[in-house]
Design a protein around this nucleic acid. Structure first.
Lengths: 125, 125
DNA sequence: GGACTGTCTTGACGTCCGTCGAATCAAACA
DNA sequence: TGTTTGATTCGACGGACGTCAAGACAGTCC
C-alpha cells in the first residue's frame, strides 16, 4: 500500500507546537491515534518508564548505557532492547561516543504527549 | 482492603494534587513506575486511545457503549474488552443505567499522567 | 595487529495481548 | 413468564512482547 500523505511518525513531532488538541477537547482521529499510541505503549512498561525518567532527569541531559544498566536487575541485552523500543517510539535519541553510547530525551515529544492529556480546569476533579 | 503501605493503585490517584514530580525532574522510583506504567500501557493501543478521547471529550462527560461501538469496525466483545482495560487502569468509570452502560473519564488520573510528562520551559525544544 | 571492554543483534522460549464467536447476564417489555 | 436488546464473560487462536544466552560489532589500549 503506497500511501502518499505518508503516515506521520512520532519522530516528526519533536516540535514546540502541539500537534493536536487535547484528547478531552476533541475526538482524536484514527490516524492520529495510530501515530501516538506507540509512544504511550513505550511508556507502558515499568522498566522503560524508569529508563525514560533517568534519561530525562539527567543533569547534563544525557545518560550512558553503562550507568543505566546497573540500576536494574536485568541483563544488558534486555536493557538495550528497551532502549531500542524507546528510540523507535521517538522518545529518545542515541549517540555513540567512543566506547560508550549516550541516550538523551526528546522533550518535544514528551510535551506533545503531556498536551494531549491536558484537561480543562473547569472539569472538576 | 486494609492498606498498610500497600501497593498504591492508580484508582487511588484521582486527585487534584499531582502524586509525583515530573519524570524529567527527578528519577521515578521503581514502585511508582510500577504503579503508573499500566495507565500508559492502557493508552498504548490506538483503539483505546480513541475510546478514551471519545469518552473524555463527550459534551456531557459520559458516553454510552452503544454509541462507542459503532465507531469502530470491531466486534462488541472486543470493544467491551478494551473498555475493561481502561477501567482496570483507572482511567474511566462505568455506570449502568437501565439497559445502557455509560462510561466517564477520571480527569484526576489524566492530570497525573500529564503532570508526569511535563517539561520545564528551559529545556529548549 | 591482538586482546579487551562495552554495546547491540540474533535466536529462542514462555507469556501476554488483541480479536473473534458463542454463551451468559441484566434490564425492559409484551 | 418468555422474548428481545444491550453488554460482558468465556474459550480459543495467532501474533507481539519481555527476557535471556550466545554471538557479533565498535573502540580503546597494549
Amino acid at each position: 500500500m503506497s500511501k502518499q500523505a505518508a503516515v506521520l511518525t512520532l519522530t516528526d513531532l519533536n516540535t514546540a507546537q502541539p500537534c493536536c488538541p487535547p484528547i478531552a477537547q476533541q475526538r482524536i482521529p484514527a490516524e492520529t491515534a495510530a501515530m501516538l499510541a506507540p509512544a504511550f505503549k513505550a511508556l507502558g512498561d515499568p522498566v522503560r518508564l524508569r529508563l525514560m525518567s533517568m534519561i530525562a532527569s539527567a543533569p547534563d541531559g544525557e545518560m550512558c548505557v553503562c550507568d543505566l544498566t546497573p540500576a536494574f536487575q536485568l541483563s544488558g541485552p534486555t536493557i538495550s532492547h528497551h532502549l531500542k523500543t524507546l528510540r523507535e517510539a521517538g522518545l529518545v535519541d542515541s549517540d555513540r561516543r567512543g566506547t560508550w553510547v549516550y541516550y538523551r530525551a526528546r522533550p518535544g515529544i514528551m510535551r506533545q504527549l503531556a498536551a494531549l492529556l491536558t484537561i480543562d480546569a473547569r472539569s472538576a476533579l
